[in-house]
Design a protein around this nucleic acid. Structure first.
Length: 1035
RNA sequence: GCUGAAGUGGUGGAAUUGGUAGACACGUUGGACUUAAAAUCCAAUGGCCAUUAUGGCCGUGCGGGUUCAAGUCCCGCCUUCAGUACCA
């Protein structure tokens, strides 16, 4: 019998689907275990071999846990709102829902053929109304909540209103906007409804605010910070500018401290925790209030070094600081305004790129030192950011390098407040091993003591207090897109109103086009039927909007991608049948609690993984869920990289430059014929055609061996000269003739640089399917490929096959290095794919994909098959296992179990190989050995395991079989092959009984003839004997 | 700059608390089977030197150190990758 993997895999995938083998139950005597993957965005490109890596790992773990007797929840779904479907809709007019549906079908087919043990009955799709109904519901709960720092949790807004009614806001300790004025209970009760709502909005956990946002004009939308990479949009790489807009925001900053503290309670890698810690960016220090001299104003600053307060010699405000215009003196006004204008023009990116230039302007105003009462000049400078802290700093040049540089640059005094430290060259920024001097009551104290004392003294005079600052900003929650969750919000008197929960979901309206409107409104502005009728509580035609009739406009923005993904893990807990009444019932939430194991990419560290934790903490505060962290254990799988193939093409850019006239004007004319102003239109056109004609040179490709001849030095290699001459022949000579023919020979200088000085070579990716395992290019196939290689010439050193160069990089369509799992499954089977992805290396690591290597694991599966079958069918017998058989089996059980617990899947694959190699050599046919072996293999290669399991006479799925029990007794050895080393170097080995005493070992080893040979008559100084491990002889 | 991770054969990677470095694979070379190819099986495979089996020297990014013994621990560097950045 042959190992016919295609049939076997199909058979068992159908079996699992039909029997709902992996359906989880919300009611079980077994302990629960929840294994979750980060759900995919179903993109049009489908899966490549990198995508399933994490799914395979989690599937192995889920199957292992089932064998270990757990009730496992292992669901899958789709994060199906998102930009690509919308982009596609804009281009083609195809409704994103249609595209998404089609993509999901592809994904599902691809996932199914890999044999995952997902419980598909619990599938979720974030773009389904029955799902986003609850995303909208959570949004409403956030709107109806505020954060009370006294109870340190989110509370219903009613508790806040009660406080306002009883005593105003004086004693309210809340996370809120910073522009709130104090009011009394009487004042509150006298406010109009709109005034009240306006104030409450400043306290709500989701609020409308005019915020400076990252606006991407090409995409027509706002982007979150983590959607921007290197100043351009993560998707598409389009430029991003700063713009003020009214947007919904999430008050995640209220949770900064709890998000930080919570990290200590969860089992994530330190690397990932560090990323979140840095992102939250806690710094402890003090806020200090400086009075402005001769002006009724104060400047508040945040500092982490209140101990250096006597070292302050100036203050710097951000150019955008609100006080700047008020305090600037008349003499300085012009200069300050010019500076502000100049900085406003510079983009955030320019400011970031250019950190070395020191710039700033004196405002003419002075602040007063809180203790010495000395005047302190107030400057503005763009190194101070309006968005961090208070947008103002107290500058201590002796203790901060930026302040130091600023002071040096503008000749501001640099008082030294550190005992015995030289600050003539640079600031002393360390907190350690130094005492404060020249600082009145702080003299002689260290950092810790001085900080405490300074804060105490500031509090005494009412000009400061201890304070903690966080870098974490509130998250903008509005997107100007179509394909996202609509906000359940309408506007009455300009104030946002929530649609009552019982009328949810508010479903996406139809639009004609998926672009912003001509007026710049988001795509929903195009919807005809997009107004809220409060009489019927239904959506109605937008033209009917009338305040008097109770019909109001609906919100035009939609929610960002992270809205739906911030709570989906709770939705899986509930079975399809009970999803109507709640996002998940109390019973389901209580049973499954939170995710025990979460596997996904680390690129979500500051996005999804932070926002989810925030929403879960909120839901916990409000009593909707019973846990305050969503993911107990988290593992980041590394990326699988592609091995791109590329050719080096002769780089020529035929450019024409220089008449005397142009040179005289010192115009650099190297960018093609267009720069040549003295030519007539006709001549230019002729040159352009010429340029096109000669672009055929670009169709010459040289292999690596040939390229080695081209060295960047003067001593020309024979071979490179030969090739160069060839190109000069076919190009340059003729070219000059042609230029004469056109009649521009005197006006134009040909710049065919690569031919005259040195060749340049450019990388061009070629599809990896045109390259074989020896990196040889299939030239004919490439020429026929429609990729523009019809006339290509491939030059090689030895007139052999053209060999391409390789490079490991991220898999992407544009690099033609994508490997499709469908092909792998067809050629080698899903079990081979699963094993190979694990065998590649440690899960967390980045590693290159190389299809050639899969023959190793495929061969292993064939050997495994042959262990159970020969040409006549099953060869498994009831024979008593030998000692060696048992030893191999139990060694394998032990190792595999340890490996799975440690997520070291690569090493367990090699353990299987060793086991099968050993059992084959032992000619083992014993059922007692081969049966448990299948259970070990089954999480990794479930199809073959099921098939062989069935052959052994079982009629239930192997997934129900218990994991074999490891028994130490089979591994007990009576002897050990000791390595005998001399001065730490192993020279030979010696088989000795394990129960031999230390002294006896020493005696036996020393008496051995090889030992004597090594010692050559010397007496050993020392003999180290570690029983069961090693013998080392020193001397 | 700061924070974190990682550097081991031609390649992917093993090596539990310091105890035989290179497991398991890929690739390569040689051989068997075959008209041939594929498949399968066998053998060799870190480098250098020597060879009759036995052997010897070097070797885990670099330079030091601790130890009977270091890929592993300590100190100082270098390189790569990731996150973050005028964060006061």
């Amino acid at each position: 019998m042959k190992y016919n993997f295609n049939d076997i895999e199909k058979k068992w995938q159908d079996y699992w689907a039909k029997n709902e083998t992996f359906k989880a139950s919300n009611n079980s005597d077994k302990p629960k275990y929840y294994v979750l993957d980060m759900f995919p965005y179903p993109s049009g490109a489908g899966l490549h071999v990198g995508h399933p890596l994490g799914y395979i790992a989690s599937d192995i773990y889920a199957r292992y846990k089932r064998h270990k007797g757990f009730n496992v929840l292992h669901p899958q779904g789709y994060d199906s709102f998102g930009l690509p479907a919308e982009q596609y809709a804009i281009q083609t007019g195809q409704h994103p829902a249609v595209t998404t549906e089609a993509n999901i079908a592809t994904y599902r087919r691809q996932l199914d053929q890999i044999g995952f043990s997902f419980d598909w009955s619990r599938e979720v799709r974030t773009s389904n109304p029955e799902y986003y109904k609850w995303t909208q519901w959570i949004f409403i709960q956030l709107f109806e909540s505020w954060y009370n720092y006294d109870s340190n949790k989110a509370e219903h807004i009613d508790t806040l209103i009660k406080m306002f009614e009883a005593e105003g806001n004086a004693n309210v300790n809340a996370a809120c906007d910073d522009d709130i004025n104090p009011f009394t209970a009487e004042e509150w009760n006298a406010f109009s409804e709109t005034e009240k709502q306006d104030i409450l909005l400043k306290y709500r956990l989701t609020y409308l605010a005019e915020t400076e946002v990252n606006w991407c004009p090409v995409l027509g939308t706002v982007l979150a910070n983590d959607e921007i990479v290197n100043g351009v949009s993560e998707r598409g790489g389009y430029p991003v500018i700063r713009k003020k807009m009214t947007q919904w925001s999430m008050r995640i900053s209220a949770y900064a401290e709890r998000l930080l503290q919570g990290l200590d309670t969860i089992d994530w890698t330190d690397a990932l925790k560090d990323i979140q810690k840095n992102w939250i960016g806690k710094s402890v220090g003090a806020s200090v209030t400086f009075n402005v001299k001769d002006y009724d104003a104060t400047i508040e600053v945040f500092t982490t070094r209140p101990d250096t307060i006597f070292g302050v010699s100036f203050m710097t405000l951000a150019p955008e600081h609100e006080l700047v215009s008020q305090i600037t003196t008349d003499e300085q006004k012009a200069e300050v305004e010019a500076y502000i204008e100049a900085t406003a023009k510079r983009s955030e990116r320019d400011r970031m790129a250019d950190v070395k230039t020191i710039s700033g302007v004196f405002t003419g105003a002075y602040a007063e030192h809180p203790f010495t009462k000395e005047p302190i000049p107030i400057w503005i400078g763009d190194y101070v950011l309006a968005s961090y802290g208070t947008g103002a700093v107290m500058a201590v040049p002796c203790g901060d390098q930026r302040d130091f540089d600023f002071a040096k640059h503008f000749n501001i005094p640099i008082p030294n407040i550190f005992e015995g430290v030289d600050i003539s060259e640079e600031a002393f920024a360390s907190k350690d091993n130094v005492k404060i001097a020249n600082s009145d009551f702080l003299d002689g104290m260290n950092y810790k003591k001085a900080t405490k004392r300074a804060i105490f003294e500031l509090e005494q005079i009412g000009q400061g207090e201890g304070k903690t600052n966080y870098r974490l900003r509130d998250a903008v929650f509005s997107r100007q897109r179509y394909w996202g969750e609509p906000f359940p919000v309408y506007y009455k008197d300009g104030m946002p109103q929530m649609i009552d929960e019982k009328h949810l979901p508010l479903t996406l309206p139809e639009v004609e086009k998926y672009l912003p409107t001509e007026e710049g409104e988001p795509p929903l502005g195009r919807a005809d039927v997009w107004a809220w009728d409060t009489n019927t509580n239904t959506v109605c035609h937008s033209e009917l909007v009338s305040e008097s009739k109770g019909i109001y406009p609906l919100e035009l923005n939609t929610m960002p991608g992270w809205a739906g993904s911030s709570w989906y893990f709770f939705r899986y807990m509930e079975e399809q049948a009970n999803r109507e009444e709640a996002f998940a019932t109390e019973d389901a939430l209580k049973y499954w609690e939170n995710v025990d194991l979460y596997i996904g990419g680390s690129e979500h560290a500051t996005g999804h993984l932070l926002y989810s934790r925030f929403w879960v903490k909120f839901l916990y505060d409000r009593g909707f869920v019973g846990v305050d962290e969503p993911f107990k254990k988290l593992i980041n799988q590394g990326m699988i990289l592609g091995e791109s193939a590329y050719l080096k093409r002769v780089g020529v850019n035929l450019t024409f430059s220089g008449t005397e006239e142009i040179f005289a004007n010192k115009i650099e004319a190297t960018v093609g014929y267009g720069a040549l102003k003295s030519l007539t239109k006709d001549e230019k056109e002729k040159l352009r055609k010429l340029q096109e004609k000669y672009s055929f040179i670009k169709e010459y490709f040289l292999d690596e061996d040939l390229l080695k001849h081209f060295k960047r030095d003067k001593n020309e290699d024979e071979k490179s000269k030969e090739i160069r001459d060839k190109f000069v022949d076919i190009a340059l000579k003729n070219l000059n003739d042609e230029l004469k023919e056109i009649g521009v020979y005197d006006k134009v200088r040909v710049s065919f640089t690569p031919l005259i000085n040195n060749f340049n070579f450019y990388k061009t990716h070629v599809p990896i399917e045109f390259v074989n395992l020896k990196n040889e290019l299939d030239e004919e196939a490439l020429k026929k490929s429609n990729l523009g290689y019809e006339n290509a010439t491939f030059l090689t050193e030895k007139n052999e096959k053209f060999v391409v160069s390789r490079e490991v990089e991220k898999m992407s369509k544009s690099k033609y290095n994508v490997v499709n799992p469908d092909d792998i499954v067809a050629d080698y089977g899903a079990d081979s794919l699963r094993l190979y992805e694990m065998f590649l290396g440690p899960l967390e690591q980045y590693k290159p994909w190389n299809t050639a290597g899969i023959t190793g694991v495929h061969g292993f599966l064939k050997k495994l098959w042959k262990l159970y079958n020969d040409d006549n069918g099953s060869k498994v017998t009831d024979a008593e296992p030998t000692k060696d058989n048992l030893k191999t089996l139990h060694k394998t059980i032990k190792k595999v179990e340890e490996d799975i617990e440690n997520f070291s899947f690569n090493t367990s694959v090699s353990t299987f190989m060793i086991a099968v190699n050993e059992l084959t050599a032992q000619k083992c046919t014993s059922k007692e050995i081969l049966e448990p072996l299948l259970v070990l293999v089954s999480p990794y290669a479930p199809h073959i395991a099921e098939e062989l399991w069935e052959q052994l006479g079982h009629n239930e799925s192997i997934s129900t079989a218990p994991f074999p029990k490891f028994e130490e007794k089979h591994l007990v050895e009576s002897s050990k092959n000791y390595p005998i080393s001399f001065n730490g170097k192993m020279r030979f080995t010696l088989e000795l009984p394990l129960d031999m005493s230390k002294d006896e070992i020493e005696k036996t080893v020393l008496a051995h003839e090889k030992t004597q040979e090594q010692l050559q008559g010397r007496t050993p100084k020392k003999v180290i004997v570690v029983p069961g491990k090693i013998v080392n002889i020193v001397g």
